[in-house]
Nucleic acid binder design. Structure first.
Lengths: 200, 200
DNA sequence: GTCTATACACGGATAGAC
DNA sequence: GTCTATCCGTGTATAGAC
């Protein structure tokens, strides 16, 4: 094996893990499979990472970071709250369909984090990031459209995540994109009911 | 080990698997742990089940059946569509909080079914059952309140599952029951907007 | 500092004795 | 029909070559 810096190895291995999970599923993503994909030896793996859990944690971090980039500027203001919500959710959906593997991986990571004490906290961190993003998005839409929300923004953010998460999970099961888009549009319309014109 | 009929062994092992997964998590539910819990030997396991996957499939079936029983009569008619939806969702939530382990197990099973080719079809079957139940529930509420739905009932059923699923997943992560109930109540109110008084 | 080789414990699965 | 002994793959660890 070529001598590669530990930093590069880490990147290679994380990228390889992402590809293997996306292509063959979480179950097939053994340490040895990841090493083969990355062109590294087993010992090289354990030289860079203390354990497989450490790689999974790093994978989660990087995937969430990539997600943040993919969804940067994802808030779309259209004057009308309903239209803004619809556009924003449609943009969200575009990022899902552009890279379904990422959603698969994130969903699988959440599940494993919930069941595996060694990954405790990873799921919570993931959802904290989701909720923060949702709160910001709703804030921007409210401000941009000159309306206020009639429910606490934390509650609306949770509902927003419930919707995106639920739609994504259903789609991962049946891959019915048309149904997913229709559901998102309907939810956008309904969310607009929680906005009231700002009194000045 | 006592000589037990294969049928009884199967039941013992499935029950033991459910207890272990609920108590120690999916990761700890090794075949050996399940056998110990059931008071059976490893070979007895493989005499009853061809593989661990087969037990998981059976566990899914039985858990879904138990779910159907727990949620039988879960539709609550209150005259008002919004109130009916709220009561029905609150009843759903009661079944979740009464037996959180079951939701954990079902969620974990869905995820494994999505990633493991050996369990292909299990997730789809699960969601088909969810959607059927949701359709029936919405139908009953519409009929009972003398209203019709302004969107196709299949779409509303999907949205219903999105909400219950999303709320449940969020709760499994942060265990915030108050937030879950608040979200469900708000969604019930939203859903009522898709009902129109029946013209005769 | 990086890789080779090897070892160990534990997981699922199975052949074959009783 | 049930159990013992064993196999192979996986995660993890480490001693030592370069």
């Amino acid at each position: 094996m070529a001598r590669v810096s530990a930093d590069d190895r880490r990147r290679q291995l994380v990228a390889a893990a992402f590809r293997v999970i996306g292509r063959d599923g979480f179950a097939k993503a053994t340490t040895r499979a990841i090493c083969t994909e990355a062109g590294a030896s087993l010992a090289a793996f354990h030289y860079c990472f203390a354990s497989k859990q450490e790689l999974l944690t790093e994978l989660t971090d990087q995937t969430l970071a990539a997600l943040a980039v993919a969804r940067a500027g994802g808030t779309h203001i259209r004057g009308d709250v309903a239209a803004s919500l619809r556009e924003t959710l449609r943009f969200y959906w575009k990022t899902v369909e552009d890279d379904p593997g990422r959603e698969s991986v994130l969903m699988a990571l959440t599940q494993h984090a919930l069941n595996d004490p060694a990954l405790a906290g990873v799921a919570q961190q993931q959802y904290a990031a989701y909720h923060r993003t949702a709160r910001e998005t709703l804030q921007e839409i409210g401000d941009g459209c000159g309306t206020r929300w009639t429910l606490p923004i934390e509650q609306l953010a949770r509902m927003f995540i419930v919707v995106t998460d639920g739609v994504t999970l259903a789609w991962l099961v049946d891959r019915d994109g048309a149904a997913a888009r229709a559901a998102l549009d309907a939810f956008a319309e309904q969310f607009a009911a929680f906005a009231a014109r700002e009194e000045s």
